[in-house]
Write a protein that binds this DNA or RNA. Structure first.
Length: 890
RNA sequence: GGGCGGUUAGCUCAGCUGGUCAGAGCGUCUGCCUUACAAGCAGAAGGUCAGAGGUUCGAGUCCUCUACCGCCCA
C-alpha cells in the first residue's frame, strides 16, 4: 500500500498504458449495453510522429471518451492513420534523392514498395505514442486509409459519383506544383503576401501611332498572351475597341477585347489576357473564344511556344523578358507591388496556374444538403462561430480537383480504351472496353487527392459500403474533435460524403479546438525551433501533468499557451495528489485500515462519526462540496469546457480536500481504529475525487485507485470502467457549507493577525472570539478544529466586544482578538487605514445606488435587499475599523 | 477587398444568459524545513477590465466608433 516518497510518473505510466491495451479495456462491442458514444480519430499522417497539437486533440478526445465510458455509454474511439499522399511521397522521394535515385528511375511498382516499407517502419510510431499518452481507443478497430476495405469504399464512392455525374474529367485551369509535378486543389495552395512589382509594358497598336500600356505582375506570361482587354465602360479606350495590338517580343498580332476582366481603377485599366496561365484569363478566353498558348511547362521551364525563351526556368525567363522589353523601350515603368503568391502547401514552391485535364468533383449538389444539415441543427459546431465560417465556404464552394499526378494513393478507377477512346469507370478492373469491347485498356495513371479517402473516414472505417453491424451501431458518430485548419479540407467534405454515401450525417457535433502556442504566443513549428515534443515532456513531467496543463488552457475558442512553467505547476498538482494519497495510506496502515473501496452507490451524506452520533461538520461540508463539484465537472465536460474541468478539480483537490479537509481529519485518526465511519467518509471522498479526475489524469488515478481496490473482488478491473460520479440534489448541504465557511473565516482571521503582527508561527497564542450568536456556537462546537488550524487557544465571549486595537480582526459575524504582549502598531495602522479606505468606497457606491430611485423601482427586490444588507455590513465593518484605528492612535 | 477573433494583475490567460466578476496559474514580497508534500505551508501586495461614446436602475459582460494585434478567405 505504501507509495514511493517522490512522485515519479515514469515508473507507473508506461505500465498502465500497456495494461489498458493488453486487457482490451477500451474494445467496443456492438452487443454492449447502453447508449452509444462513438468518435473517429482525425487520422494523423502515417509517416509523421505526433506533435503537441495532436496531444492536445487526443487529450480532449480522451477526456470526453473516458467520461462517456464511465457513464455507461457503449463507447468507441476508433484510431487510425492517413496515407497522406503528397506529404508521404515527398518524404520518400527525399530519401531516394539522398541515394541519388528518383521515383521515375525506380518505376511505379518499385517506388510503391519503398513507400510501403517506409510506412511499415514509421507507421507504428503514432500508435506507440498514442498508447503511451493514454489514449483510450479501440486498437482492434485501427484503420489505415489504404486498407483494402477503405480502398473499396473509395472506389465505390468514385464509381457512384461518376455514375451520377458528380465526378467528371475535363480540361480546366488548375493549380500546378512544378516541383511535385501534380495538380493541387485550391485548398492545397497557400497564399503569401510577397513583395513584387507591377511592370508596365507598351503594346504597339496596329495601325495607330500609339501604345496600349498593360500592367502585369508576371511579365513572362505575356509570351502566351492572346488578347488584351479593356473595360466596356472605360471611355479612355473606347476608340480601341476592335483594334489589334502587336505582342512585343513574339511579334504576334492579338485583339483588343472588351471585357469586365479589365478594371478601370486598376493601373492603366488595360489587362493582358493569358488564357493558359491565369484563372481569370482562362474564363475570359472562354468568353471570347481565344486560343490558349502554353508557354510554361509542367516543370516550370518555358516551352517551345515561348520562342527564344524556350527551356529557361520561369523566373529566369521573367528577368530576360523584362530586360529585352527595356532594351526595346517597351517597358514604361516598374512599380513595387505586393502580390499574393500562391504556393504549394507541402513544398512551398510557387504554384503555376495552368490548363490541364483533370478529374473533378461537382461540389454544388453535394454542398446543398451539407449546408442544410447544419442549418437544421443536425450538426452543431462548437464554438458556434465556426458555423459561419463553414457556411461562407460552402456557399462559395468550387469544384474540387481530385486527381493527383502521384503514385502514392488510391488509383483512379478509370480505364481508357486505346481503340475507341471510351472511358470505363468500374468497381472491378474491367477486362474489356465497355463501349467497343476492346481489351486494350489502360488505367488512368493518377491517384486521388488524399482528402478524398479522408472524406469517407467516419463510415469507411466502420465497414461501409457493406451494411456491417459496426456501421449500424456506431454511425453516425457522436462527435468529432478537430482543428480549424482542416475544417474545409476534411470536416466539410466528410459531411458532404456522409450524406451522399450513407444518407446520414457523419457526426452530430464538431468541437473545434485551438492551436497550441509557445510562451510568446508563437505558433509551434519546426523552422521556428519552438516545438514541444510530447514524448519528451511526457518523460520529463509525466503524461498526467502535460495533459492537465493542456486542459487548463483549453478554453473553447481560444488558443492554448503551453510553457514549461505550466507543465511544472501541473506536475506539482499531480505531486500534491500523490502525497495526499501517501499520507492517507500511511495513516491507514497506522490505524489498521485495509484497502477499501466505497460501495458503488455510496451515500450522498456522510456517516455520523462524532461521539454524539452526529456527522462531523467537515464531513458534511466535504460531501456537499464533492456533490457540487461533481455537478460542475459533468457540466464542464458536456460543454467541452475542459479548462473549467481542470480548474475545478484542481481547486477542489488541492484547496479544499488537502488544505482543509485532510488537515482537519488529522484530528480524527486513532491508532488501531480499523475501518470506522471516519475512514469510510474520508475514503469515500478521496475515491470519488479520483474518479472525477480520471478522464483528465488517467494514470495517477489508476495507480492510486488500484491500491485502494487491492484484494477486493466486487469491483471493476479498472477505474476507467468505474462509474463517473453524478450529482444528486439530495447531497447538497448548504447549511454545512455556510458553517464551514465561518469556521474557515475564523481560522483565516487568526492566521492573518499572526502574520501581520509578525508573530512566531510556532507559538500557540491566546485568542478571544467575540460573537453573540452563530460564530460563537460554531467556535464552541468546533473549538478543536479552529485551535489546531490556527495555532491558538480559544476563549469565547458571547457578550461585549473587544477594545478596538491592533490585534483585533473584525468581520460582520465576529471580532477576533489575539492576546499579545505588545503590538506592532505601525503595520496595524497601515492595514486599518487601507481597509477603511476600501470600505468607504464600497459604502459610497452602494449608498449612491440605493439613493437612486430608478434602481429601487426597477431592480428585482432581492437585488435591492442584498445590496442593503451589504451596505449594512460595510458600515458595521467600517465603524469597527475606525474604532480600532482610533484606539491605536491614543 | 470580404470575414472572424483578440486587447482584463509583472507574465500567460479565465470570466458562458448584464446584478458576490474583478478571478486563476506562474512570478513578486514576508514568514515558516509545522515528519503527506519546500514540486510544500501560512499570509500579503498588485488591475480606472485598450480608448471614446451609447443602451440600462445597473456593463469586462450588450451596441457604435477609434487605435493596435492576430487569423482565415479572395
Amino acid at each position: 500500500m505504501m507509495l514511493d516518497k517522490v512522485y515519479e510518473p515514469q515508473r507507473f505510466e508506461p505500465r498502465w498504458a500497456q495494461w489498458w491495451v493488453e486487457q482490451g479495456l477500451f474494445r467496443a462491442s456492438v452487443e454492449a449495453p447502453g447508449p452509444v458514444f462513438s468518435l473517429v480519430i482525425p487520422p494523423p499522417n502515417v509517416t509523421g510522429s505526433l506533435h503537441i497539437g495532436h496531444m492536445l486533440e487526443h487529450t480532449e478526445i480522451d477526456v470526453t471518451v473516458r467520461w462517456h465510458r464511465m457513464r455507461g455509454y457503449n463507447t468507441l474511439w476508433l484510431p487510425g492513420t492517413d496515407h497522406a499522399g503528397i506529404a508521404t511521397q515527398m518524404l520518400v522521394e527525399r530519401a531516394l534523392a539522398e541515394e541519388g535515385l528518383d521515383r521515375r528511375k525506380l518505376g511505379r511498382e518499385a517506388f510503391l514498395e519503398r513507400v510501403w516499407a517506409w510506412k511499415e517502419r514509421y507507421g507504428d510510431t503514432i500508435k506507440r505514442q498514442m498508447i503511451r499518452l493514454g489514449a483510450s481507443c479501440d486498437w482492434s478497430r485501427e484503420r489505415f486509409t489504404l486498407d483494402p476495405g477503405l480502398s473499396r469504399a473509395v472506389r465505390e464512392t468514385f464509381v457512384r459519383l461518376y455514375e451520377k455525374g458528380l465526378i467528371y474529367r475535363g480540361e480546366y485551369m488548375v493549380n500546378w506544383c512544378p516541383r511535385c509535378q501534380t495538380a493541387l486543389s485550391d485548398l492545397e495552395v497557400v497564399h503569401d503576401e510577397t513583395p513584387g512589382n507591377l511592370w508596365y509594358i507598351r503594346y504597339p497598336v496596329i495601325g495607330m501611332d500609339r501604345f496600349l500600356v498593360v500592367a502585369t505582375t508576371r511579365p513572362e506570361t505575356m509570351l502566351g498572351d492572346t488578347a488584351v482587354a479593356v473595360n466596356p465602360a472605360d471611355e479612355r479606350y473606347r476608340d480601341l475597341h476592335g483594334k489589334r495590338v502587336l505582342l512585343p517580343l513574339m511579334n504576334r498580332e492579338i485583339p483588343v477585347i472588351v471585357d469586365e476582366l479589365a478594371r478601370p481603377d486598376f493601373a492603366t485599366g488595360v489587362v493582358k489576357v493569358t488564357p493558359f496561365h491565369d484563372p481569370n484569363d482562362f474564363e475570359a478566353g472562354r468568353r471570347h473564344n481565344l486560343p490558349k498558348i502554353q508557354v510554361i511547362g509542367e516543370t516550370g521551364a518555358m516551352t517551345a511556344e515561348a520562342g527564344p525563351y524556350a527551356g529557361l526556368d520561369r523566373f529566369e525567363a521573367r528577368r530576360r523578358v523584362v530586360a529585352d522589353l527595356e532594351q526595346l523601350g517597351l517597358l514604361e515603368k516598374i512599380e513595387p507591388y505586393t502580390v499574393s503568391l500562391g504556393k504549394c502547401q507541402r513544398c512551398k514552391t510557387p504554384v503555376e496556374p495552368l490548363v490541364s485535364i483533370q478529374w473533378f468533383v461537382r461540389t454544388k449538389p453535394l454542398a446543398e444538403p451539407a449546408i442544410r444539415v447544419v442549418e437544421e441543427g443536425r450538426i452543431r459546431f462548437i464554438p458556434e462561430n465556426w458555423t459561419k465560417t463553414y457556411f461562407e465556404w460552402m456557399y462559395n464552394i468550387r469544384d474540387w480537383c481530385i486527381s493527383r499526378q502521384l503514385w502514392w494513393g488510391h488509383r483512379i478507377p478509370a480505364f481508357y480504351c486505346a481503340d475507341c477512346g471510351h472511358t470505363t469507370v468500374a468497381r472491378q478492373d474491367p477486362q474489356a472496353c465497355a463501349s467497343c469491347g476492346s481489351p486494350r485498356l489502360e488505367q488512368d495513371p493518377d491517384v486521388l487527392d488524399t482528402w478524398f479517402s479522408s472524406a469517407l473516414w467516419p463510415f469507411s472505417t466502420l465497414g461501409w459500403p457493406d451494411d456491417t453491424p459496426d456501421l449500424r451501431k456506431f454511425y453516425p458518430t457522436s462527435l468529432l474533435i478537430t482543428g480549424f485548419d482542416i475544417l474545409f479540407f476534411w470536416v466539410a467534405r466528410m459531411i458532404m460524403m456522409g450524406l451522399e454515401c450513407v444518407g446520414d450525417v457523419p457526426f452530430r457535433e464538431v468541437y473545434i479546438h485551438g492551436l497550441v502556442r509557445d510562451a510568446e504566443r508563437q505558433k509551434m513549428s519546426k523552422t521556428r525551433g519552438n516545438v514541444i515534443d510530447p514524448l519528451e515532456v511526457t518523460e520529463k513531467y509525466g503524461t498526467d501533468a502535460v495533459r492537465m496543463s493542456l486542459l487548463l488552457g483549453a478554453a473553447p475558442g481560444t488558443d492554448i499557451v503551453l510553457t514549461e512553467e505550466r507543465m511544472l505547476s501541473a506536475r506539482a498538482f499531480a505531486n500534491k495528489i500523490w502525497n495526499a494519497a501517501r499520507f492517507l495510506f500511511l495513516h491507514m496502515e497506522r490505524c489498521g485500515v485495509q484497502p477499501w473501496l466505497p460501495p458503488v452507490n455510496a451515500p450522498r451524506r456522510p456517516e455520523p462519526a462524532a461521539p454524539d452520533g452526529s456527522a462531523w461538520l467537515e464531513d458534511r461540508w466535504m460531501f456537499s462540496r464533492l456533490n457540487r463539484v461533481t455537478d460542475a465537472a459533468n457540466r464542464a465536460i458536456a460543454r467541452y469546457r475542459y479548462h473549467e474541468l481542470a480548474q475545478l478539480l484542481w481547486q477542489f483537490f488541492w484547496h479544499e480536500f488537502c488544505d482543509w479537509y485532510v488537515e482537519i481529519k488529522k484530528l480524527r485518526f486513532r491508532e488501531n481504529s480499523g475501518l470506522n465511519a471516519d475512514w469510510r467518509n474520508l475514503l469515500t471522498i478521496f475515491e470519488a475525487g479520483l474518479r472525477l479526475l480520471h478522464p483528465a489524469m488517467p494514470f495517477i488515478t489508476e495507480e492510486l485507485w488500484q491500491r485502494l481496490a487491492a484484494n477486493q473482488s466486487e469491483r471493476p478491473v479498472s477505474i476507467a470502467l468505474a462509474p463517473y460520479p453524478q450529482y444528486d440534489a439530495a447531497g447538497d448541504d448548504p447549511e454545512a457549507e455556510r458553517q464551514m465557511e465561518l469556521v474557515q473565516e475564523i481560522v483565516v482571521a487568526a492566521r492573518n493577525l499572526r502574520t501581520t503582527l509578525q508573530l512566531d508561527p510556532r507559538q500557540t497564542l491566546d485568542a478571544v472570539l467575540y460573537s453573540p450568536d452563530l460564530a460563537a456556537d460554531l467556535a464552541e462546537s468546533h473549538r478543536e478544529i479552529i485551535e489546531r488550524l490556527a495555532g491558538i487557544r480559544l476563549e469565547i465571549q458571547r457578550e461585549g466586544r473587544p477594545t478596538p486595537g491592533p490585534a483585533v480582526r473584525s468581520t460582520p459575524e465576529f471580532d477576533l482578538l489575539l492576546r499579545i504582549p505588545a503590538a506592532q502598531s505601525d503595520a496595524q495602522r497601515r492595514r486599518l487605514e487601507k481597509e477603511i479606505q476600501r470600505l468607504e468606497k464600497l459604502v459610497a457606491s452602494s449608498q449612491a445606488q440605493l439613493d437612486n430611485e430608478e434602481f429601487l423601482r426597477r431592480a428585482p427586490a432581492e437585488v435591492v435587499a442584498s445590496l442593503r444588507e451589504k451596505l449594512a455590513d460595510y458600515k458595521a465593518q467600517l465603524a469597527k475599523n475606525r474604532e480600532a484605528l482610533a484606539a491605536l492612535s491614543q
